[in-house]
Simulated assay, not measured.
Amino acid sequence: MAQVFSVTNVVQLRTLVAVVRQGSFSGAARDLGYSPSAVSQQIAALERTCKVELFERRAHSVHPTPIARQIAERSNEVLMALDRLRDQIRAISQGWHGSIRVGAFGTASQHLLPTAVRHFVDRYPGSEVMLEEGFPTELLRALVARDLDVALVYSHGPSQRKWMKEIKFVELLSEKMLLVLPEDHPFAGHRHVSLADLRDEKWIASHEGTPGAEGLEELCAAAGMTPNIGFRSNDPDVMERLVREKVGVALIPAMGFVPMPGVTTVELADSNAMRIVYAAYLPDDASPLIEALVDALREVSSSLVGDGALTPWPHPQDPEG
C-alpha cells in the first residue's frame, strides 16, 4: 500500500472521486474541466498503479467497483485536508494570518513591543506572536538560524554596528545614554557633563562582554579614558539602586531609566553617547507579517518622544546591513 501511495498523484485521486460522484467519465470531465479522454487516461493510470480494476466499463456508462468506492471515500477526506492546507498556505503567504517569532532586548520588550504587538494583532487578528528576550548578538544568531523572524537589537552609534551583511536593519529610534548620579553628587544639576570629567569615578556597568559594557568602554576610550568598574549588573533597576547608595555612577539608556528617589540624571556632552535601536530581519524571508510588525514598531517608535531623550529615526530611508 505504501508503494501505491508513493506513486499515486493528487490529480488521479480527484479524477476518481469525480467519476464515482458523477457516474460517468463525461460527467467527471465537465466537473473537472478536462476532456473525457483525459479522464479515461487518468483512471487507467490509477488502475495500473493500484493493479486492480476500478470501474466496470459499459457501452454508455461506468460503474465503480467496491474497491473504487472505498478508495474514493478515503481520497475525499485526504483531498479536503489538502484543500484546507492549500488555503492556509495561501493565507499565510498573503499575510492574512500565521505565526511570527520576535526577539528583543529587555527595555525594548517593555517599551516598544507591547504597543506594537497590539497594533499588529489589530491588523492581523488571526496571527500568533511569540516573544523571546536576549542580547543583540544572541538574537542575531537566532535570526540567521531562522529561529526568529524579527529581532529588536541596538548598537552604540552607527559606526559601531558590525553585524551580518545578509540582515536588513531598519532604524527605529535613537536614545541618549544618561549619566546616572547620586542626587548630591558634585555634577548633579549640571546641564552637561563630559566623560573625560569622570575619569576618577567608580563605575557600575553591565556584565563583561555584553553590549552595554562594551559600549561604555568604547565611549570612554573615545574620551581618552578607561572606566574604573567596581560593580556589574545587567538590571538597570539594580544599577540605579547602587548609584543611590553612592557606590558609583552609571550610564543607562533613556528607555531603561526609571526615576527613583536619591538619583538624578545628567546628559553627556559626548555626541556619540547614544544607543540606536533597530528592527532586524532577513530580506529573503520578508513576508507581509514581518513588514506589518516592522511598520507597527515604527509607529510606536515615532510616538515615544518626550523630553528629547528618545528620537525617532528619520524614514523612509533605511540603510541595509
Rank of each mutant, 00 (worst) to 15 (best):
R191S: 14
H192A: 14
H192E: 15
V193A: 08
V193C: 03
V193K: 00
V193Q: 00
V193D: 03
V193N: 00
S194C: 13
S194P: 00
S194G: 13
S194T: 08
S194D: 14
S194V: 04
S194N: 10
L195F: 09
L195Y: 03
A196H: 15
A196P: 06
D197K: 05
D197F: 05
L198F: 07
L198T: 00
R199F: 05
R199W: 09
R199N: 07
R199T: 02
D200M: 09
D200Y: 08
D200I: 03
D200S: 15
E201W: 03
E201F: 06
K202V: 15
K202H: 13
K202R: 14
K202P: 00
K202D: 11
K202L: 14
K202S: 14
W203N: 01
I204G: 00
A205M: 05
A205L: 06
S206D: 13
H207G: 15
H207E: 15
E208Q: 12
G209A: 06
G209N: 10
G209T: 10
T210S: 15
T210H: 02
T210L: 02
P211Q: 03
G212E: 03
G212A: 04
A213Q: 11
A213K: 01
E214W: 01
E214F: 02
G215F: 00
G215H: 02
E217Y: 04
E217Q: 12
E217P: 01
E217H: 09
E218S: 12
C220V: 02
A221V: 08
A221Y: 09
A221H: 14
A222S: 12
A222D: 10
A222L: 07
A222Y: 00
A223S: 12
A223N: 01
A223Y: 01
M225V: 07
M225D: 05
T226S: 06
T226C: 05
P227E: 10
P227M: 11
I229R: 04
I229K: 02
I229H: 01
G230T: 09
G230V: 07
G230N: 05
G230D: 04
F231A: 10
F231W: 14
F231E: 04
F231S: 05
F231D: 01
R232T: 13
R232I: 07
S233D: 11
S233L: 06
N234W: 10
N234Y: 06
D235Y: 09
D235A: 12
P236C: 12
D237S: 13
D237N: 13
D237C: 11
D237Q: 14
V238Y: 09
V238N: 09
V238L: 13
V238T: 15
V238H: 11
M239K: 15
M239W: 01
M239D: 05
E240F: 10
E240R: 14
E240C: 15
E240N: 14
R241G: 05
R241S: 12
R241Y: 04
R241W: 02
